[in-house]
């Protein structure tokens, strides 16, 4: 079939007009991948097109780029999937990375984030002979995180990194969870406290699920971040607005069956955090004038007692 590619190019060695979009029309087998198409361009049409690729089997993580605005591993994305009727495929470099040339981006910031979370096993002591004895179940669970190939797609499309470069980011946080839940590691609490307290830590994720959507290996980084939040709370790391937010949410839903937005705002800021509370006032006042402030007395679901009972039962079962 005929494939139409529109590729974003960048040549740092040109002094002007160094960013442009280039069209390539090529003829390939319909079940070819987008990588096959790009290799075809490179080999037969334009040898100057720059991109990284190696394994062609979605295991090396080299060929991340944006296809129609969404980050993809192009070796596992088939042309017919995205452009069944021969629509134009817009190919651009990954987001949240500095571009080196064409589709090749600087991956050093990605790996700096990985290094930030102490990415290696830290046992207090090793067995003198043989292996650590741990359950297969505990290892099996880590397979999800181990599937990460560090391709950077989640970082590319992360909505927090777009506005905040200090965010540790989905890939590194997922990697962190791989050590937090490894029974052989003895720095669990230190790791959790770090991820909890650090600027750009677990509470800065907006739960937008971009990372879940684009991850080509089912790592679901956001879910790993949610696991970490739950665990951080469990070890008593509660001095965060994030904790107060989720705690207040739970209390509100459990008590009334519905969300109490006033209480949520105040409690998330922290009852004793005067400056944060004052910070909320301007918008609150305006909202009050417009008749838009959430009710001071929370609205309740009918039968809210039933939800209270459910919550109690679940707590007891734990």
């Amino acid at each position: 079939m005929e494939v139409k590619l529109k590729v974003k190019r960048f040549d740092p060695e040109k002094s002007k007009d160094n960013i442009w979009y280039q069209d390539y029309n090529i003829d390939i087998h319909p079940s070819s991948t987008i990588l096959d198409a790009l290799i075809n361009v490179r080999e037969e049409v334009d040898g100057t097109l720059g991109l990284r690729c190696a394994c062609r089997a979605s295991i090396c993580g080299s060929c991340g780029m944006k296809v129609n605005g969404q980050a993809k591993l192009v070796c596992k994305t088939r042309v017919e999937e995205i452009a069944p009727k021969g629509e134009i495929l817009l190919i651009e470099p990954m987001g949240n990375h500095t571009i080196i040339r064409d589709l090749i981006v600087d991956i050093s910031t990605f790996f700096a984030k990985i290094e930030q979370i102490t990415p290696y096993l830290q046992p207090d002591s090793e067995p003198e002979t043989g292996e650590f004895i741990v359950s297969n179940e505990s290892m099996d669970k880590l397979l999800t995180e181990m599937n990460c190939i560090m391709c950077g797609l989640c970082v590319s499309d992360c909505t927090v990194l777009e506005v905040d470069k200090t965010f540790i980011g989905p890939a590194a946080l997922a990697k962190a969870s791989r050590f937090v839940y490894d029974p052989r590691d003895d720095q669990t609490n230190q790791r959790l406290n770090y991820l909890n307290d650090e600027q750009g830590g677990i509470w800065d994720c907006t739960r937008c699920m971009q990372c879940v959507e684009v991850c080509p290996k089912g790592v679901s980084p956001m879910d790993r971040i949610m696991d970490l939040r739950e665990s951080a709370i469990e070890i008593g790391a509660k001095k965060t607005h994030g904790y107060h937010h989720t705690n207040s949410f739970e209390k509100s839903v459990t008590a009334n069956g519905r969300l109490d937005e006033t209480r949520l705002a105040i409690e998330s800021a922290g009852i004793f955090n005067i400056s944060r509370l004052i910070d909320l006032i301007p918008v609150g006042l305006k909202a009050l004038i417009r008749g838009k402030l959430p009710p001071l007395f929370p609205h309740k679901a009918e039968d809210n007692k039933k939800i209270q009972e459910l919550a109690k039962k679940i707590k007891e079962d734990k």
């Binding site: 739970e250 069956g257 039933k306 459910l310």
Partner: peptide
């Protein structure tokens, strides 16, 4: 009689609920 969905926030702390 329906309750709040939890908005994904409740799920952070108490996914089963």
């Amino acid at each position: 009689k329906a309750g709040c969905t939890g908005a994904g926030v409740l799920q952070e702390k108490n996914p089963l609920l």
